[in-house]
Design a protein around this nucleic acid. Sequence first.
DNA 1: TCCTCTGTGCGAACCGGTTCGAAAGTAGCA
DNA 2: TGCTACTTTCGAACCGGTTCGCACAGAGGA
Lengths: 343, 343
Amino acid sequence: MATIGDVARVAGVSRSTASYALSGKRAISEDVRTRVMDAVRSLGYTPNAGARALATSQTMVIGLLAQFLEDEFAPAMLQYILGVSNTARELGYDILLVTEDDGTRALRRITDSRMVDGVVLLNVAEHDERLPLLRAARQPGALVGLPEDCSGVDVFDLDFEEAGRAMVDHLYKLGHRELVLVSQPDHVVERGGAYVWRLQNAAHEQARQRGVTLHSVFGASHQPEVGRDLHAVLDAHPGATGLLVNNEAAAAALPSVLHERGLTAPGDLSVLGRYSDEFARTFSLPFSSIESAPDRLGRMAVRQLVRRIEGEVGPGEPHVVRFVSPELVDRGSTGAPPRRTGG
Amino acid sequence: MATIGDVARVAGVSRSTASYALSGKRAISEDVRTRVMDAVRSLGYTPNAGARALATSQTMVIGLLAQFLEDEFAPAMLQYILGVSNTARELGYDILLVTEDDGTRALRRITDSRMVDGVVLLNVAEHDERLPLLRAARQPGALVGLPEDCSGVDVFDLDFEEAGRAMVDHLYKLGHRELVLVSQPDHVVERGGAYVWRLQNAAHEQARQRGVTLHSVFGASHQPEVGRDLHAVLDAHPGATGLLVNNEAAAAALPSVLHERGLTAPGDLSVLGRYSDEFARTFSLPFSSIESAPDRLGRMAVRQLVRRIEGEVGPGEPHVVRFVSPELVDRGSTGAPPRRTGG
DNA sequence: TCCTCTGTGCGAACCGGTTCGAAAGTAGCA
DNA sequence: TGCTACTTTCGAACCGGTTCGCACAGAGGA
C-alpha cells in the first residue's frame, strides 16, 4: 500500500511538501502540486485513517449507540439509524454502530479509546446510565430523547406534550367525549421512557380541560400479546369512540384486531397514532398519526454534533434542547363519533 | 488523556515494558506487572485505537455495507444488521455501518484508508459492482447473498432453490394443484436479486414434476401498490388455492387484503411465506413461512470473516459458499384446499 | 574463576500521517 | 551592492502505540 512517503518520492519532494500539497494548508507551487497529484493517482494513494487519526486527533467517525432491548419495537428504530447515518455521511463522517446491550461499557470503550469524534445516543431514558459517562468524555454528545438532566449534551426530541394535547384536541373537535390512550409497555416506561409520561400527562390535562373522559392503558410491545391487550381495552371501554395509540407495536397490530371485531375506522372508531409516515407505509397502516419524524431528529442531532466537533460551537457555549413540533398526517381514520345506538 | 508513556512513568518502567506487561507477549516479573496494572487503574488508561491500528495494522473494526434502496423493504434488513453487529462484538470487533447509496465508493473509502479489517456485504446482487473492488482489497470479505462469481470471498445465503421446492411440495402434499407465487418487485430482480429467480425457477421445476399449475407474479415493494397487486393477482387466478409469498412487503400487506376480500387462511386460501420468525412476530403475520434466518446468516458471515482476519484461515485456502437449509415454521395458514363449490 | 544460559528490562526504530521552524532562493527596493 | 521581504521547500519532531535486538544481572556448571 502506498504511503505519503511513496508519493513524495515519486513526485521528487519531501513528505511534508506532499502533505501540504494535498491538504492545501500552505502555499505550494503549481508545478509541485501537479506532480504530487500525479503521483497520488499513479500510486492509488489513500491516506491511512489510523495514522491520520493519531496525528490530528480526529477520526471522522461518529459513534451511534442504539439499544435493541427485548421489549423495544425494532423497526421504528431503523429510521433513526438511517437518519443519523445518512446525515453523517453528507458531512464527511462515518458511523460506528454499537448495538451492545451494555451501553455504558460500549460508550466507555469507544470514547476512551478515541475511536470516535462524537456520539449520538438513541433511546435516551429519563435517568440514562450512559449520560454521566458521556458528560465525562472528551467527545461531545447529542441525544435523541429527553432525559431529566440535559446538562452537557445537546438534546433533540419530539414535543410529546404538544403531541398529547394535539391528539386529544383533534378528536375533541370532531365531537368525541370518551377516548382511550394506548401507551408503551410497562417495561419501557419503567426503564425511563419519559416521553410516554410526557404525552400521557399532557393528554390527561388537556382532556380534563375539555371535559373529555380519557382512559390510559398500556400495551405489550410484542405479538401476540399486544393484540390481546387491544381486545381487552376495547372490551373494557365500550363507550369510547376514539383510540389514541402511542405504541408502534399496538398500531401495527390494530388492523387485524379491528378486523376480528368487525370494526372500521373511522366509521365505528376513530383512530389516531403516533409514528412516522415511513412506518405507516411499511406497515400499511391506514390510521392518521402524529408524525414522529425520526429522520429529522436524527439529522438535527448529527448536524449539531458535527458543529461541536468542528468547533463551530465552542464547548463553553450553552447546550441546546430542541423540540420538534408534532404534525398530524391525515389518513382519514378520524371522524365524527358514531351515533349512539340504543342507550 | 493518559498514554502508555504516563503509565510507564508512574510504574517506574520503560514504555516497552509497560506494553509487554499489558499484552503479555513477553515474560514480565510479577512485581513489575502489578505496578503497571496499578498505574493503569489509577490513571484510567485506555489504549488509543488509532495509534494501535497504526502500529499493528489491525483496527478491530468490521465494515458493514447495507444498501437501503428505494424499492427495498427496510425492516427485513435490520435483522441482518443486528446479527452481524452482535456477533462482531462477541468476537471483539466493532461495526462501521455504511448505508451510502454509492456502495462502490464507500467500499473503496473504508478499505483503502484501512478503517476496517474486513467487510460484510449485505444485499449482494448477481453481478454486484462492489465485488471486483472487494476482491482487489487487502481485507477479506464475506457476503450475505449469492453472486454469480463467488471467487475471492466467502458466501452465505439461504438455499433458495430448496426453499422453492419445499414451498411447492408442502402445498402439493396438502392437495393443492394450482398455486400463485408472488415474487419481489421488478426493480429488485433487475438489479440482480438472483435469489428471486433461484426460488422461482426451482419452484416451477418442482411444480412441473408434480403436475401442479404455478403462476408467477411480481409484487411492488411499497404500500399501497403491493396491496393493489395482490388484489389483482387474486382476481386473475380465481382457481388458485395456495399463495406462495417470496416478498416481505406483500406478506405484510396480505392480512388486510384477505380481510378486504373476506377470505381466511387456510379456510379459503393456503398461504406460505418466506421471511423470518422475527419478522412474522413484528408484523403479526399469521402465515406459515420458510424461515429466512437473517440472524444466522449474519452470524455465519462474521464468524468466517473473523477467521480470515485472524489468519486461522489462510488467504490461500479455498473460499466457502454455504447455504442454509430452509425450515418451515408452521403457523397454521396452510391446509387442504377448499372443496370446489359449483363447477 | 570463567563461561554460558536464562530471566528481565531498556532503548530505539517503526507504523504513516501532520505541522512547526527554518533554510534556500528569488524579487523588490533603496 | 546590500538589505529586506516573500515564496517555496525541507528537516525534524510529534501523535501513541508495538516490537526487535541487546544489555545486564544472577544462577548454574565445568
